[in-house]
């Protein structure tokens, strides 16, 4: 399959990622700012009043900005914790919430919904994690909380810059009623390998067969991701595997069959906490925007079915693929641990 990368200029013509750091004046006063800026001694800091002055500008090229991503340091105001979105799986947890201390991701997956959700490809880092912790504490006073902290970003991939995963893990250590999911496509478990595992912190790896991973730019290979998950598993962390989104690529059934065999040659299926499986699905509004941004991307040009504002593959074809994937995984993992996203969830 083709992609827009065929028309993209060479990477070296761009300024290096994070060579521009836009910083709210209020964010510069935050103690975490010094830590983040110290990771980029050669970067230029441009002082701004509000992150939206940069992030929410009109007429930005999400795609080109991804080639020279700027970092925006900000202080998050307003709502800090959101109820879990209907497009996301709750894995049987009640009181499902998510939070975004970072907006956007350093990876560049062609099918990523963030391209439709955000007007900019730049990365916003909210420094006031303590305010988010405060809101989580307030929720915990009412009931246990299942909180996904790495949905609209990849926190573990950014750990070398932000240290947010360590802080979240420390926070979860103090609150046994809090279950955290930290989802990643990175191979960066080594960043937190020195920490003692917590049973209420789930490290979740999104896995894709090689043919799908070719559409995930700058993402560690599936083999590296598997190795990272294996290290986490051996260290005693609860590990979740997410085959989500499943892509209906040519010869998809064979691709996924071969890949699942490879996954469970590397990882002991009986030690996996659980498995998430979901088809590619996206809001039609987001899809429209992404198609404008990546007009030559084959995955996004697929003639999707549209139901209630959501675009997805043909239901019959996707069900057949999901059935196949579920039954293949069930050879290695207790079927009760397999959570399957259904369109009518």
């Amino acid at each position: 399959m083709n992609s827009l990368n065929t028309v993209c200029p060479a990477r070296q013509t761009f300024n290096p990622p994070f060579s521009r750091i836009y910083a709210e004046r209020e964010a510069l006063a935050h103690p975490r700012a010094a830590q983040v800026l110290s990771a980029f001694p050669a970067s230029r800091v441009i002082v701004i009043d509000h992150y939206k002055d940069v992030f929410n500008r009109t007429h930005q090229s999400f795609y080109l900005q991804k080639q020279s991503q700027a970092l925006i340091l900000a202080v998050k105001k307003g709502t800090l914790i959101y109820p879990g979105a209907p497009f996301c799986q709750d894995f049987g947890n009640s009181h499902f919430y998510y939070t975004s201390s970072v907006m956007n991701c350093i990876y560049d997956c062609e099918y990523c919904y963030l391209q439709g959700m955000y007007p900019s490809g730049n990365l916003v880092l909210f420094l006031n994690l303590e305010d988010i912790f405060g809101e989580v504490r307030a929720l915990l006073a009412r009931h246990p909380v299942y909180l996904c902290v790495s949905y609209d970003t990849d926190l573990l991939a950014l750990e070398g810059i932000t240290g947010l995963v360590r802080d979240w893990i420390a926070f979860a250590g103090e609150h046994p009623d809090l279950t955290l999911e930290i989802r990643t496509k990175s191979a960066a478990f080594s960043r937190i390998a020195d920490l003692a595992p917590l049973q209420n912190v789930i490290l979740a790896w999104t896995l894709s067969p090689e043919a799908a991973a070719r559409h995930e730019h700058r993402v560690p290979s599936p083999a590296l991701r598997l190795q990272s998950a294996l290290h986490a598993l051996r260290a005693g962390w609860p590990v979740r595997l997410c085959f989500d989104p499943l892509l209906l690529l040519p010869d998809a059934r064979n691709l996924y069959r071969t890949f699942i065999e490879e996954v469970f040659r590397t990882l002991p299926g009986d030690q996996i906490l659980d498995i998430g499986i979901g088809p590619f699905r996206i809001s039609t509004e987001y899809l429209k925007r992404i198609r404008r941004s990546r007009p030559a991307c084959a995955i996004l040009s697929y003639p999707f079915e549209v139901t209630d504002g959501s675009a997805s593959y043909d239901r019959t074809a996707m069900h057949a693929l999901m059935d196949e994937v579920c039954s293949l995984i069930a050879k290695y993992v207790n079927p009760d641990k397999i959570y399957r996203y259904e369109e009518d969830n």
């Binding site: 004046r25 209020e26 006063a29 010094a34 980029f40 001694p41 230029r44 002082v47």
Partner: peptide, 27 residues
Amino acid sequence: PESSAPDPGQPIAPSGRKQWAYGTLPY
């Protein structure tokens, strides 16, 4: 107005670089 901001004349990065300066003068 710089009331709510740190003194931009002071280095923020531990390296001591005044990263936010444009040209030769601090912001």
